[in-house]
Write a protein that binds this DNA or RNA. Structure first.
Lengths: 292, 292
DNA sequence: TAAAAATACTCCATAGGTATTTTAT
DNA sequence: ATAAAATACCTATGGAGTATTTTTA
């Protein structure tokens, strides 16, 4: 049995007329007679009760007609679906977010994708560090990443979407919580809560800013995520210098202050050249409008 | 696109190996390569990413594989379903019941069919008179009928399944409601509530019984169904002589009494010779065991 | 270098066409 | 008498086979 048999049978059954069905299908009438008879023989069931003057659909034929349409519709759905997947209008995109960027950028990003590519599903991997995200892009477990450049140059490409200033987070009862304006120099001697790992881009910017102000920061505690870092600040274990987007994560006991004289850290949208499917390209196009 | 393409693609995608898939399908390997490529060209989508050393299913291919199985499974289901319909193991059977027989016989009948032919659906048409049922059988709007013979001899065949005595229904406060035993003669002079129409088989039996007892019944009111007839009896408008199976329809205010000297009326299972499909035959076989 | 997919080419099975017959209204 | 399905027969497309080449792990 082939789809041809189903298409032919369905058309004849709908019209109850071999001649007209043949016209619709652009084949000759004997071809139809032959194909339908072939189908009936394979099934061992009479689907159409026909005299030379009229064609009736048998009860079995009625059932099989419904099944035939189910099959033909499923084929159509499959064809359209697979084409939408192939041209990037449908599918699953796994996006990684570094540190605080999930809180500040995910909402706009998700909304834009939902709007422009309603059939695209997003899988969010939040709170990953930049190196882990690069590894994910390379391994193919991530399709896109919001991270902080630079990145190792092995196939990972990126586009800077924002340069955000660093701000300082202090406990509410800290002396800097209420003074007029805070500069990096004011942090001299303070215990610092920093991100874990020495390849943190934010850490590096913090150290660089302090050196410019003429001192080296005292790293007292380390946190693997911004949420934990801020919790330690709230606990009074030190001050934290974090990207401004951390303000999207308000925490009782923590006050954010602008920090004059600090470096800025860039945020970028990254992907892997090899694994950039049409779907990833489509999402990148949409995000190009969100983050011009 | 033909089912062949789906079968071939599905097998290759499952095994990720053209050679082994070819063995499974009992075709040569180049035939597979050709068919899959044909499918991909028609879709305009790469379903399998292949080097000469390994075959991977693309994301689009993954989706289409699922759709292909849906289609192939739907085809299988259609084939099996239509065969079950053709050999009478599945389908819709419309059964008519005359007067009271629905209440007394339908439960056993439905239970037996459900047990032996679980895929057969019953459509019950209750409270039809025998002539209406014969008309239904002839017109093809009924497949089976539980009715009271005789029937006109134009293709309708039947098998007697029961000969039931007539009983008398009287109001609770009636003089006959509590005497030892009631005979037809005791009904002399009583107003009768009868079935409507003059070709009612029960009516005929009642009149015959009264004549044997030496009087003609006084028909005071007529009812189109047993339920209505009994309601009139309950209302004190007269006595009703009905088949014993009417006892399955208890009604407050009505008392049933055995009736000595009355005729019996037969109940039969009827069908039309022309419209007796394998399905109807199968149901008849089952009911042959229920009503031997 | 060897396993496996693609390519080249051939053949015949069969889908589909034309002409004609059969049949029921 | 006629419309419409079935039958008979023919043609040619293309599905599938064999032999060979190409490719990459």
């Amino acid at each position: 049995m082939e789809l041809r048999h189903l298409r032919y049978f369905a058309t004849v059954a709908e019209t109850c007329h071999f001649g007209r069905a043949a016209e619709v299908l652009h084949v000759a009438q004997p071809a139809l007679s032959h194909a339908v008879r072939q189908l009936e023989q394979e099934l061992g069931v009479e689907l159409l009760a026909r005299t030379t003057r009229q064609v009736r659909v048998t009860p079995a034929g009625e059932f099989f007609l419904a099944e035939a349409w189910r099959v033909l519709d499923a084929v159509d759905a499959g064809v359209h679906g697979v084409r939408r997947i192939a041209d990037g209008r449908r599918g699953l995109v796994r996006i990684g977010f570094t540190g605080t960027s999930a809180f500040s950028h995910l909402p706009h990003l998700a909304r834009a994708v939902k709007q422009e590519l309603p059939e695209v599903e997003l899988e969010i991997h939040a709170d990953l560090l930049t190196p882990a995200q690069c590894a994910g892009l390379r391994a193919g477990t991530l399709d896109l990443a919001v991270l902080r450049p630079p990145v190792p140059g092995d196939g990972v490409e990126f586009r800077v979407i924002e340069a955000e200033p660093l701000v300082v987070a202090v406990p509410v009862d800290h002396r800097l919580a209420s003074v007029g304006s805070v500069s990096v120099g004011d942090l001299r001697g303070e215990p610092f809560v920093t991100y874990a790992g020495k390849d943190s881009v934010v850490n590096e910017a913090v150290v660089r800013s302090c050196h410019s102000a003429g001192f080296a920061p005292r790293r007292e505690h380390e946190a693997a995520s911004t949420a934990v870092l801020l919790a330690l600040v709230a606990g009074g274990l030190g001050v934290g210098v974090v990207p401004a987007s951390a303000r999207s994560l308000p925490l009782p006991g923590v006050v954010f202050r602008d920090l004059t004289g600090a470096a800025t850290v860039r945020l970028a949208l990254a992907w892997h050249r090899e694994h950039a499917s049409p779907l990833v390209r489509a999402v990148l196009d949409v995000l190009g409008d969100v983050f011009p």
